[in-house]
């Protein structure tokens, strides 16, 4: 069970870290100063969540490790995030829609995790949930603002949707390890989460007059460490100092 929880904690942490890392790329480059500050806030929250869940992973690890070791010393095949979170930053529409999809996912996932049979996990999820609610209200408002304003913005949102949509089913994938946790009520039924996720996002897409794409390549692989080409570059950048100067304090 510890090993299962370790793996699941990594899934949560890697998802938040890769999201936060991409968002951080906006710092100093946002469309408004106010947005710069807001995006950085969300990025900070997500990296904070990652640290929390890495700590949970450490507490359930068979070997002695630290949140920094997990973040900075694992390579691509060991990362457990769904592919969508490692995709490049893209333009503001792409960032916004991706953020919205993840925010809705986090909302429902953390809501359920906050009643987990594992008390530590429940407490962490509760803490993250507070911040996720704020992230969602922001990304949802931006989806509407961008989709229901100018033609150019609407087009960019539609393009973002076409590019991102088929990365979303992967969010709800499970493996044997997760299924054991589901049976033990440590984590919720991911199928049920998917149902509410779909209802909520499809309603917003309809409100935003955005059309779901009909077909595309269906992303998969994060749970078994099969990633896009982008993650390697992200890690090369993020892990540079730890790799170039091993064993140092910073």
């Amino acid at each position: 069970m510890n090993q299962d929880l370790y793996q699941f904690a990594l899934r949560l942490a890697d998802t938040s870290l890769t999201m936060g890392q991409r968002l951080a790329e906006w710092c100093g480059h946002g469309p408004y100063l106010e947005e710069d500050v807001a995006l950085t806030n969300v990025s900070l929250d997500l990296i904070g969540h990652a640290q929390m869940f890495y700590q949970l992973a450490c507490d359930n690890s068979e070997t002695s490790t630290s949140p920094d070791d997990l973040a900075f010393l694992r390579d691509v095949p060991e990362y457990r995030n769904p592919l969508i979170t490692e995709l490049p930053r893209g333009d503001f529409a792409y960032t916004t829609l991706k953020q919205y999809f993840i925010d809705v996912y986090h909302l429902h996932l953390y809501q359920q995790l906050s009643v987990s049979s594992d008390e530590q996990l429940a407490a962490l999820a509760q803490k993250a949930l507070m911040e996720v609610k704020y992230h969602l209200s922001r990304s949802e408002a931006w989806c509407q603002r961008l989709s229901l304003s100018t033609e150019e913005a609407h087009e960019k949102m539609q393009k973002a949707l076409d590019d991102l949509w088929f990365y979303t089913p992967e969010l709800f994938e499970t493996d044997e390890s997760m299924q054991r946790l589901m049976t033990a009520s440590v984590i919720p039924d991911m199928g049920a989460i998917q149902t509410v996720w779909q209802q909520q996002t499809e309603q917003l897409l309809e409100d935003c007059q955005l059309a779901k794409p009909e077909n595309g390549w269906m992303a998969t692989g994060g749970l078994v460490g099969e990633h896009t080409e982008h993650l390697g570059y992200m890690l090369a950048d993020m892990q540079f100092l730890q790799r170039a100067y091993p064993g140092c304090e910073w």
């Binding site: 480059h29 469309p31 947005e35 503001f92 304003s149 100018t150 913005a153 960019k156």
Partner: peptide, 12 residues
């Protein structure tokens, strides 16, 4: 790069 975003926000 933020021009269209600011414009969209204003129109909205």
């Amino acid at each position: 790069e933020g021009e269209w975003v600011r414009e969209a926000a204003e129109v909205y």
